[in-house]
């Protein structure tokens, strides 16, 4: 066998190739690291943008609701109280006119009394609508019961209410959200759903308070996202997120409306 000698050029070539390949592999790793970081940062930014967008929408919904509520209260005050007090004021001026007969005075006084009674009743109704005193004094269950009774007496709808939970009075702030959600649902059932029967029940599911709501109205297509963008639904979503709960809504056209939420 011939002795094998390694030529210098071969060693140098090997060394150079090894060196260059290590260098380039290192470069590849550095570039990988650089672009990965860029990509991850970008994803995080996108996520944050989405969150901000969502928060903005919620804020917008809150502001719009607030304005609507103010408008409604202003209208109520104007229509039901100011107008009546106006007439009362007119009548009192009449009363101060000279030469009134006894009959006239009595007529005017009766008028004033009836108008103030009405104004008083209306102001109580407005205050009651804003925050039902029964809810404040006796808690959620009584509040919902009264709400149901009100709906039954004033509108042509049957309401079945069933409660299996003993509500803690200290949680009244949270319960107000539940109450508002139910109020919104019931208003929707009547106004949009034309329902004639509503079922509400509070259940305790393994320590999680759950509310089931059902009506037999005309329903809507819950898969259509257009139906979930209304102000009312946005408000309900906000309230649910305040409560750290979850909500499931299912409805089909002509099949009524069902909602379950936890709180």
């Amino acid at each position: 066998m011939t002795t094998k000698t390694i030529s210098e050029s071969e060693i140098v070539a090997t060394a150079i190739f090894s060196c260059v390949s290590f260098l380039l592999m290192g470069l590849v790793l550095i570039l990988f690291f650089y672009f990965s970081r860029k990509k991850i940062t970008q994803k995080e930014l996108e996520k944050r943008d989405l969150e901000i967008q969502y928060q903005k929408e919620q804020l917008h919904a809150i502001i719009v609701t607030q304005e609507e509520e103010r408008k409604r209260i202003a209208q109520d005050l104007h229509d039901d109280i100011s107008s009546k007090l106006n007439i009362v004021s007119l009548n009192t001026h009449l009363l101060s006119a000279p030469n009134l007969t006894e009959v006239e005075t009595k007529e005017i006084t009766d008028n004033i009394i009836s108008l103030t009674t009405k104004a008083l009743e209306n102001s109580r109704k407005i205050a009651h609508n804003l925050l039902p005193p029964v809810f404040e004094k006796f808690g959620l269950s009584a509040g919902v019961e009264e709400l149901c009774a009100e709906f039954e007496s004033s509108k042509s709808v049957k309401v079945f209410y069933n409660n299996e939970i003993d509500f803690d009075e200290n949680d009244i702030d949270r319960h107000l959200h539940v109450f508002r959600i139910l109020q919104e649902f019931m208003n929707n059932s009547l106004r949009h759903g034309k329902a004639s029967e509503i079922k509400i029940s509070f259940l305790n599911n393994n320590g999680v308070s759950t509310c089931n709501y059902e009506d037999n109205g005309i329903g809507f297509d819950s898969k259509n996202s257009e139906n979930q963008k209304g102000l009312g639904m946005k408000n309900i979503d906000s309230r649910i997120s305040f409560l750290n709960g979850t909500i499931q809504i299912s409805s089909e056209i002509n099949k009524g409306f069902i909602a379950n939420f936890t709180f």
Partner: peptide, 24 residues
């Protein structure tokens, strides 16, 4: 040497491409 280097190196780059794509 050129063959070993270029074929391996390009495959390393492609493999890194794939890792990069798998990030998200």
């Amino acid at each position: 040497l050129y063959e070993i280097f270029i074929t391996s190196f390009l495959l390393i780059i492609y493999s890194v491409f794939h890792f990069y794509n798998m990030l998200d």
